[in-house]
């Protein structure tokens, strides 16, 4: 395999609040190859969005990328770049789209001007060229009559169209990497399906690599090639999308998949993961999932497992002691089958 475009190694992004240090992202390693979509799934507070913002360099005090973290785009170490150097990369070689298009688009600029801006800055295009590029991009993302809509303001567009405009803006300079953070979460289900289709199609046509972040396992299973599952600031499982959803290795992934209500059949009672999503204020000791895990034993309470495996990785002591994959509590994995 060719070397990855983007490599994240031991990324630690901490939030420093007075005496307190929140280890929000705590040792995340990821790699992204050309043309690939990596899905990142996880629940609120697991660090998935902060991982993306760290890659983009979109963080500021009191949030810090800690020494020893590495984010490399091709061969360039992004975490060491100055702000000025970073600005030549953002929106150009690497772009990001967000959940709420309305809060990311500037309400007093036309969508055309907003799409043209990165082209004028990074490509030094003049006004006419940039406008032509904006129209071309609007057409690419499926706007009807792009020549007219290029002069629309964001509030004149529906939520789905705003998200398309934001995608056009992010892709105007043909970045090598697109980071999409919950891009369909604020949209209705029929519009969501269109945007997923659009992103998958654009990725193929432009040959870019994509990180797609979502809390929705269904959405990720449709668009991703590989998936990383995050829990409590760490990646707990990573693998090929089909393999991951058919044969989850980590008890958290297993539990998440089981507790989802299904569209294709009804069960009498949903299996649950007991307890609550932990807060970065107090990650549990040992394995961070152990207080909610159906398989946990003494070792899990005292020692933190590493992410191990070849193609399909899991951060769990079951990798070393698979015979312990017997649930110890009722109402959890295995209980209803």
């Amino acid at each position: 395999m060719s070397p990855p475009i983007l490599t994240v190694e031991q990324l630690r992004t901490y939030i420093h609040r007075g005496e307190q240090t929140l280890r929000a992202v705590d040792g995340v390693s990821l790699s992204l190859h050309a043309g690939e979509t990596l899905g990142i799934v996880g629940e609120s507070g697991c660090g998935k969005s902060l991982t993306c913002l760290s890659i983009m360099g979109l963080i500021e005090e009191p949030v810090r990328i800690e020494p020893g973290s590495s984010i490399r785009l091709h061969d360039r170490e992004l975490s060491e770049l100055s702000l000025r150097e970073l600005e030549t990369i953002r929106g150009n070689e690497i772009s990001m789209i967000f959940q709420e298009p309305m809060t990311s688009l500037n309400p007093v600029w036309t969508v055309g001007d907003q799409i043209a801006e990165p082209v004028r800055i990074h490509r030094r295009a003049d006004a006419g060229e940039a406008r032509a590029r904006a129209i071309e991009m609007l057409e690419l993302v499926g706007f009807p009559n792009p020549e007219e809509r290029v002069d629309s303001y964001p509030h004149e567009l529906s939520g789905g169209m705003q998200q398309r405009a934001m995608i056009a803006m992010a892709l105007a300079c043909e970045p090598a990497v697109l980071i999409a953070d919950e891009p369909t979460t604020a949209l209705d289900v029929t519009i969501q399906a269109e945007i997923i289709d659009l992103l998958a199609d654009l990725q193929r046509r432009l040959g870019m690599a994509m990180i797609f972040v979502s809390h929705d396992l269904g959405v990720v299973s449709q668009i991703a090639d590989r998936v990383a599952v995050m829990y409590a600031g760490q990646v707990v499982e990573e693998g090929d999308v089909g393999d991951m959803f058919r044969r989850p290795r980590h008890p958290y992934t297993e539990g998440l998949l089981r507790c989802l209500p299904r569209l294709d059949r009804k069960v009498a009672r949903l299996p649950v993961i007991p307890g609550d999503v932990p807060s970065p204020r107090d990650w549990p000791g040992g394995c961070r999932f152990h207080p909610r895990c159906a398989y946990a034993w003494e070792r899990c309470l005292s020692a933190a497992p590493a992410l191990t495996g070849e193609e399909h990785l899991s951060r769990c002591w079951l990798e070393e002691e698979p015979e312990r994959r017997v649930p110890s509590r009722a109402g959890e994995p295995g209980a209803d089958s």
Binding site: V189, T190, Q192, E194, I196, G218, S221, F245, L263
Partner: peptide, 19 residues
């Protein structure tokens, strides 16, 4: 259309949403 648009884990590859 609404049902077809829901993204489901483990959906068949040929299940396409009705646009």
């Amino acid at each position: 259309a609404l049902l077809s648009a829901v993204a489901v884990v483990g959906a068949a590859d040929d299940s396409r949403p009705i646009v």
